[in-house]
Design a protein around this nucleic acid. Structure first.
Length: 211
DNA sequence: CGTTGGATTGGCT
DNA sequence: GCCAATCCAACGC
């Protein structure tokens, strides 16, 4: 069953709404030779306008320019000397906002993913933002790719996570903007990333029981 | 033009 | 659990 692509209007919302709604949808990558790779999104993070943890916080640069453009495009950047990261642009032109794709459950093309990753255990293929880019051959060439109309990468409707299966935590690896609970993950999913040390995930829509 | 540090990972203790 | 690797964009001089 070929899923429907997510529409432009899906992305034209605050990243904090797009990020949890992406859980359960499917990232599809088609290589130049036609090979199809796919995975179900199980972990995301939101970055919003005015957010000190966002690459766009200090204004537009060559690197982050895609974040300032129209929604539904892929923002790909390089960090830590080795790793590409992929994000989905949200909101509107001039409102820099994005959702970092942090982990996938591999669905299609797992043998090729293992080859690109240099390791084969399913949980090691896409369980981190750098890992999933390596597994799906995402790099600078896909920076700015149109997820609604482009041929190489897009998102399809999947089975959305039910609300009380979504947990939230602070974002991983950021030194500012640590307060907001803008990391969203499917609770107890084995394919999520290593994550951050510290307070445990909260279940969305539930409050901790009083001691 | 030199410096700084990063939306991480993999390997080792 | 802890830490080094590794390169480049951003920024200051």
């Amino acid at each position: 069953m070929a899923g429907r692509r997510l529409s432009r209007s899906f992305y034209r919302r605050p990243a904090v709404e797009v990020a949890p709604d992406l859980l359960g949808s499917v990232l599809v990558r088609v290589l130049p030779d036609g090979l199809r790779l796919a995975g179900r999104i199980v972990e995301t993070e939101a970055y919003e306008p005015g957010d000190p943890a966002s690459h766009a916080f200090r204004g537009k640069t060559q690197r982050n320019a895609v974040m300032f453009g129209p929604p539904g495009h892929l923002y790909v950047y390089f960090t830590y000397g080795n790793h590409w990261m992929s994000n989905v642009v949200a909101r509107r032109v001039g409102e820099p906002s994005a959702v970092l794709l942090r982990a996938l459950e591999p669905l299609e093309g797992t043998a090729e993913m293992a080859s690109f990753r240099g390791r084969g255990r399913p949980m090691d293929l896409c369980s981190g933002p750098g890992k999933l880019c390596q597994a799906l051959a995402i790099d600078r060439r896909l920076d700015g790719a149109d997820l609604v109309r482009g041929p190489a990468v897009w998102l399809e409707e999947g089975t959305p996570a039910v609300p009380n299966a979504i947990a939230t935590t602070g974002r991983v690896g950021v030194s500012v903007g640590v307060e907001p609970q803008w990391r969203f993950l499917v609770r107890s999913d084995p394919f999520v990333s290593r994550g951050r040390p510290g307070p445990p995930a909260k279940v969305r829509g539930w409050s901790a029981p009083k001691p």
